[in-house]
């Protein structure tokens, strides 16, 4: 088998705010790692055999890699925009493939059934046509003009609205969602899903947000997102097979699933197969 190109990617391994000298023991793609704050204040990450791994701090998290990252971590320009509140949501451990966690994040059709009366509600189940593309220059998957009726789109939303979304996949286990911002029309709220692959069928999900919302208490913002992700977990831990099937035949996509179709195609093209299965079984 060829070396999985995902080995050279950056992955979240800790909240930056929880980094301390004592350190945190965790894992990355099956290898035990240690994450701690060094004497110079920077993040230090060591692998299973004590070797130093690449490390950086960005978007509220510590990022590391088992391999040799060929690119810096992807950019989120909105993260540096003044006036946004940055929200560390914390971690949700999910017994599923890291790729399934991302794919679920890209899916809106489940909102009325899994996030009932929060992100969706019957009879508003229709998924309108939207645009999906693999942007060759950035090498990212993008879905735009995604619209969905939501009873309570965000903590700051009152009553139902049709929310517009854009989804972006800049790395195999990371996705960024841009979403209508109720208090500030013309701007987008940013909600990210950073997934740490612990094993092919186990991951830690670190959601993170950059919002225009000065009203809602931080606890409520965190609670809202945690509620959503715990609801998703009940799905993700019960999908068969556990690994994401990249070849057609095992699952039946529809027009509503075009983001997922593009995501799977992009993964396959790059050989990003950690957490995937290639042949239908």
């Amino acid at each position: 088998m060829t070396r999985d190109t995902m080995i050279d990617g950056w992955y979240p391994v800790s909240l930056a705010s929880q980094l301390d000298a004592h350190g945190r023991s965790t894992a990355l793609m099956g290898e035990p790692i240690e994450v701690r704050r060094g004497e110079d204040g920077n993040a230090k990450v060591t692998g299973g055999n004590g070797r130093a791994l690449p490390a950086c701090i960005r978007y509220g998290h510590v990022w590391s890699s088992l391999g040799d990252p060929q690119k810096p971590l992807f950019a989120i320009p909105e993260a540096d925009q003044p006036g946004r509140r940055l929200v560390d949501v914390g971690v949700v451990r999910v017994r599923c493939s890291p790729l399934r966690a991302v794919e679920n994040f890209l899916d809106i059709a489940h909102f009325p059934f899994v996030h009932t009366d929060i992100l969706g509600a019957e009879p508003h189940t229709e998924v309108q046509n939207y645009k999906v593309e693999i942007r060759e220059d950035e090498d990212e998957v993008w879905a735009t003009q995604v619209r969905f009726y939501q009873p309570q789109a965000a903590k700051s939303a009152e009553g139902g609205i049709t929310t517009e979304y854009m989804y972006r996949v800049p790395a195999p286990t990371c996705s960024i969602l841009y979403k209508t911002c109720p208090p500030r029309p013309g701007e987008w709220d940013v909600i990210t899903l950073f997934v740490q692959p612990l094993a092919e069928d186990l991951c830690d999900v670190w959601p993170w947000m950059a919002l225009f919302d000065d009203e809602t208490p931080m606890t409520d913002l965190i609670h809202f997102q945690q509620t959503i992700f715990v609801q998703d977990r009940s799905i993700l831990e019960n999908q068969i097979p556990r690994l994401l099937p990249l070849d057609p035949g095992m699952e039946i996509p529809t027009r509503a699933d075009l983001t997922s179709v593009a995501y799977r195609r992009w993964l396959k093209r790059h050989g990003y197969t950690y957490g995937a299965q290639l042949v239908a079984q």
Binding site: S234, I235, N238, Q239, I240, P241, E251, I252, P253, T254
Partner: peptide, 11 residues
């Protein structure tokens, strides 16, 4: 198993 996305139908 739902043939769409493999979710358990017993849920």
């Amino acid at each position: 198993r739902c043939p769409h996305r493999g979710m358990r139908l017993s849920h």
